[in-house]
Computed example of a mutant assay.
Amino acid sequence: MHDVEAPPQERTRFQWWHHSHPTFAGITGFFAGMLFVTALPGAFVGVLRLLFSHDTAEQLFPFVLLALALPIFMLVKRKTRRFAQFMFVGMLVTALVVLGVTSLVLYFMVDA
Rank of each mutant, 00 (worst) to 15 (best):
G26V: 03
F31T: 05
K77D: 08
I72A: 14
L40I: 13
F52L: 07
H2M: 07
A57N: 01
T102A: 14
E5M: 06
L35R: 03
A112N: 12
S20N: 14
F30M: 07
A84Q: 12
F36S: 06
F86E: 04
F52I: 00
F73L: 14
V76T: 06
M91W: 04
E58R: 14
V93K: 01
T28G: 00
L70N: 03
Q85A: 11
V98N: 10
V97N: 01
F31Y: 13
T56R: 11
F52E: 03
Q85M: 11
V89R: 04
H18W: 01
D3Y: 15
D55T: 08
L68H: 09
L51Y: 08
G100E: 07
G33V: 06
V47S: 09
G33Q: 11
V45N: 13
V76E: 01
K77C: 04
H54Y: 10
Q59D: 09
A69P: 05
T94P: 06
V45S: 13
F24C: 10
Q59A: 15
E58L: 11
A112L: 12
S53H: 05
L60H: 02
F61V: 08
G29C: 02
I27V: 14
L70H: 03
V93W: 01
L66W: 07
A43C: 07
F63I: 06
P41E: 02
V98D: 02
L48N: 03
W17C: 14
F30A: 08
L92C: 14
F61P: 00
V45A: 02
P7K: 10
T23D: 06
